[in-house]
Design a protein around this nucleic acid. Structure first.
Length: 559
RNA sequence: CGGGGUGUAGCGCAGUCUGGUUAGCGCGCAGCGUUCGGGACGCUGAGGUCGGAGGUUCGAAUCCUCUCACCCCGACCA
């Protein structure tokens, strides 16, 4: 491709208002153009990269026997009403009406659609298992689009859905997808981790997130560098912390007028916030419980819900707290509390604590767990923090930011029950089809690659994803000798199937080098005054190392 | 939805507080010439309803009211 005949709108100055490195570079290098918040056009070289990612996805999906199809973007509300998601999705769903007033959704995902396709057509165990995949645009009216195409309102996604007669089959397919995802992320050259997203279903864990490590990420994940344990922040287990307290103290009430937060109380009492404990009152289904954690921790509602084994869990309302504890919110404490109490592991054996007095403007000092109050049981109910002990070894957890690129789920029969997807087994008995689903953010992958592969000059594409194999820079296209040599190199490489971006523009050399570095094509062939067929300069974008080789060696070197 | 911020030429910005000729600057763009190994130089030129609506005023980019769009932090979220 001759650059003089192409469309590559690069920018010199940084686009304003954008913080994320990949977002800046994608705009600067002319990969994308914002049409509206969270809605982007892919410009020519951006699209080339997107297609490369798609091809990798297709190859790996095909390899495990998933079948590609394409579903509509505009989907009738009737399907969504079958599963209740017409209501559940709320404002995140884009909705439109047709001329007759019938309501449609711009599909945010496609479980309902694929189920409708399979329903009635796959009714025998003989036709199972089946796995489909789609690569298409999805729509979510995100409350806050951010970081360019990392969180857009319109984005390209690869989703896959599998259908099974048995749990074993679902598990086998799940593992296949899991391995396919590993290959995909390896081929893209990501530094990524896989975290358990939902532990403890029967037969093991069946939901995983594939997260690329990046400071621009939205999720916090924890990794143990010693044993490799990893999990997202809400679910990450925490090992036992060793906190040594002085001896038991004497109970003492203190007057703490209007001091509610841990910061306020510890500041007022001039105590380490680790001496404070928080007592949170929750409504569990129809009864109330107290969750007790360290003042410096945050409660993980997911963990609490799991240990309580309840369906609904909500922080109690202010009036209720006053009623059950005898004091306004902020002064709850475990002593004499007539509720079921669950304490975090880190409370066990602690002495000399500060707790709420269950009395307005009052806290109690010198409290020992076991002596002054006895929780119903101890469990790990806090959100992990950086440097917490690893639950599996004696290492320390490291908090990292990450971008969620893929998520695999075992869905079970949630959708097949709602939409009546049934099949007959060998004995003629009817069962619901068991499902799995497996998503990857395709456009998000492009941004993430840039996050992980760039320097102060611009993007550095991994060869497998670069929009072109090489860029050919003619320093001075008005010079006859340089032009003939460049033209010859260009036509030879093209003939040999190498994708060349040929910078034949009449521009200053500096501009050409800067653009080449910005758009990040892995190899730069530079034709200057001294170049001959025997002496062609080849520069590697990543290292900026230069070598001089013969024309007939070029193809082999680049491929 | 809460908090903070920005809208002036294709891009990046100044001017707004303290209203007053014809709204500026850099880059980019067009023409001519000189250059040609790290965003070159000279000359000439094109390009703006100052986000939008309403108001105050003799006079509004500037003051007031409303509104729209976008960005960042948080809440929310596959």
């Amino acid at each position: 491709m001759r650059l003089t005949e192409y469309f590559l709108p690069t920018l010199i100055s940084d686009p304003k208002e954008h913080e994320t490195i990949s977002h800046k570079l994608m705009q600067k290098a002319g990969l994308i153009d914002m049409t509206s918040s969270g809605i982007y056009s892919f410009l020519p070289i951006g699209l080339l990269v997107l297609r490369k990612v798609e091809n990798i996805l297709k190859e790996e999906m095909d390899r495990i026997g998933a079948i590609e199809l394409l579903m509509p973007t505009l989907t009738p509300s009737s399907l969504w009403k079958e599963t209740g998601r017409w209501t559940e999705y709320g404002d995140d769903m884009f909705r439109v009406k047709d001329r007759k007033g019938t309501e449609f959704s711009l599909a945010p995902t496609h479980e309902e659609i694929i189920c409708d396709i399979v329903r009635g057509r796959v009714t025998s165990y003989k036709k199972l298992p089946l796995a489909f995949y789609q690569i298409q645009t999805k729509f979510r009216d995100e409350p806050r689009p951010r970081a360019g195409i990392i969180r857009g309102r319109e984005f390209l996604m690869k989703d896959a859905y599998s259908f099974h007669a048995t749990e074993e089959s679902a598990e086998t397919t799940y593992k296949r997808f899991f391995e396919a995802y590993r290959r995909i992320f390896d081929r893209c050259g990501f530094s990524y981790i896989i975290v358990e997203a939902e532990a403890g279903l029967i037969g093991g864990s069946f939901s995983h997130e594939f997260i690329a490590i990046s400071d621009s990420g939205e999720d916090t994940v924890f990794v143990c560098p010693k044993c490799g344990y990893s999990a997202n922040s809400e679910r990450c287990e925490v090992g036992v912390r060793q906190i040594e307290d002085p001896n038991d103290g004497e109970l003492k009430e203190v007057y703490t007028p209007g001091l509610i937060t841990v910061k306020e109380v510890s500041g007022f009492l001039k105590l380490n916030p680790e001496q404070l404990i928080k007592t949170l009152i929750y409504k569990q289904d129809s009864e109330f419980v107290a969750a007790i954690i360290l003042g410096t921790d945050e409660l993980s509602e997911k963990k609490l819900k799991k240990v309580l084994g309840c369906k609904e869990l909500k922080l109690a309302k202010k009036e209720v707290i006053a009623e059950v504890t005898g004091a306004p919110a902020g002064f709850s404490g475990p002593i004499g509390l007539p509720l079921k109490m669950i304490a975090d592991n880190s409370i066990k054996g602690r002495k000399n604590l500060v707790v709420g007095g269950n009395k307005i403007d009052t806290h109690i000092l010198g409290v020992s767990c076991g002596r002054d109050f006895e929780p119903g049981f101890f469990a790990d109910i806090k959100i992990a923090k950086n440097d917490d002990p690893c639950p599996r070894c004696e290492g320390r957890l490291e908090a990292k930011r990450g971008i969620e690129l893929g998520h695999t789920f075992k869905l079970g029969t949630k959708y097949s029950q709602a939409m009546n997807l049934v099949f007959l087994d060998e004995t003629g008995r009817e069962h619901f089809i068991i499902m799995g689903c497996y998503g990857i953010g395709v456009s998000r992958i492009v941004a993430t690659i840039i996050e992980q592969n760039c320097d102060d000059r611009g993007i550095i594409w991994p060869p497998a994803l670069s929009p072109f194999d090489t860029i050919l820079i003619n320093i001075n296209p008005e010079d006859f000798a340089m032009r003939s040599l460049s033209d010859e190199i260009y036509s030879i490489l093209e003939t040999e199937g190498i994708k060349v971006l040929y910078d034949d523009r009449i521009e200053s050399p500096g501009k050409k080098f800067a653009d080449a570095d910005l758009i990040g094509i892995p190899w730069q062939i530079i034709v200057g005054k001294k170049a001959t067929k025997e002496n062609i300069e080849l520069c590697e974008r990543k290292t900026k190392n230069k070598e001089f080789i013969r024309l007939d060696e070029l193809t082999g070197r680049i491929k």
